[in-house]
Amino acid sequence: MDALVSTEWLARELGASDLRIVDASWHMPAANRQPRAEFEAAHIPGAVFFDIDEIADTSSSLPHMLPSPEKFASRMQALGLGDGSRIVVYDNSELRSSARVWWMLRVFGSHQVAILDGGLQKWRSEGRPVESGKPIVRHRHYTPWMDDKAVRSLAQMKSNLTTKAEQVLDARAASRFSGSEPEPRPGLRSGHIPGARNLPYKELLNEDGTFKRGEELRAAFEQTGVDLSRPVVTTCGSGITAAVLTFGLHLLGHDKVALYDGSWTEWGSQPDTPAVTGSL
């Protein structure tokens, strides 16, 4: 299974015994949307809903931080996502939040994971079937495991200011990166991590919400000055759209990449973290 699958591919595979489909829709609070309610109103047949805010470290003051491996495994079992499953993740969000869940699943040991290109919007625009209601799920075993090499902490990001061992790539809009637009979350400074480069996640997408591919995708990264032969850390506001950049790099075969889970919500709230304003 490719990392990015088409609606045509998924339509052919519906009903396969090892296939699991996950709705990973998430929205900024200001959008005033209820993704679980939207899921119950209409979702791809057989899909389950992945609650990004609940399948998280809910003891943290930061939003949707990674949970423990044990909690993640427990929630996956409850969703019927077991070891050996082929998992296709989609969303109905302009943030392409499916990339966050793709990344989480890989961090916690699932490798047969793909994103549905174009998400639910493309699926429905083609007249493909949807169903409503809450799914009936059979629990499956999910082995708790975590690859923390794909995750960066605040301490590691501070250290990187000195070592510059990893390039930092910020997925936020240019106005937030430069600090000309205030952050949507209260209490955060404006600006970006010193040395970071800016690649708004939408630059990786076509107008219909599908991902760019090949040289067009590569050019989106290279025009920021990123050296694709060197390691990259992705970041954003709270770790959602950073995963879009991580996924884009994966499509290019670049897997020397980690994601700063706390992102600007953590960095911009600390008293001792430097912040830079203005564009590069």
Rank of each mutant, 00 (worst) to 15 (best):
A3V: 06
V5C: 12
S6V: 04
E8V: 13
R12I: 09
L14M: 12
I21T: 03
V22I: 13
S25H: 09
S25A: 14
M28L: 15
P29D: 11
R36M: 08
H43A: 08
I52F: 03
D53G: 02
T58C: 11
S61F: 07
M65C: 07
E70C: 02
M76Q: 04
L79Y: 06
L81E: 10
G82N: 11
S85M: 11
D91V: 07
L95V: 02
S98C: 10
V101I: 09
M104H: 09
M104E: 13
A114H: 04
L116R: 09
L116P: 08
Q121E: 15
K122F: 13
W123M: 11
P129Q: 13
I136V: 14
V137K: 09
R140K: 15
R140N: 15
Y142G: 07
T143H: 14
D148W: 13
D148P: 08
K149I: 13
K149G: 14
R152T: 14
Q156G: 12
E166D: 06
Q167I: 02
A174K: 04
F177A: 01
F177C: 02
F177M: 03
G187M: 07
L188E: 06
L188D: 04
R189Y: 03
R189C: 02
I193L: 06
E203F: 04
E203M: 06
R213G: 10
L217Y: 08
F221K: 00
V226I: 05
D227H: 00
L228E: 03
P231W: 02
V232R: 00
C236E: 00
A243W: 03
L245G: 02
G248V: 03
D255C: 06
Y260S: 00
G262Q: 00
T265C: 01
Q270V: 04
V276Q: 13
L280I: 12
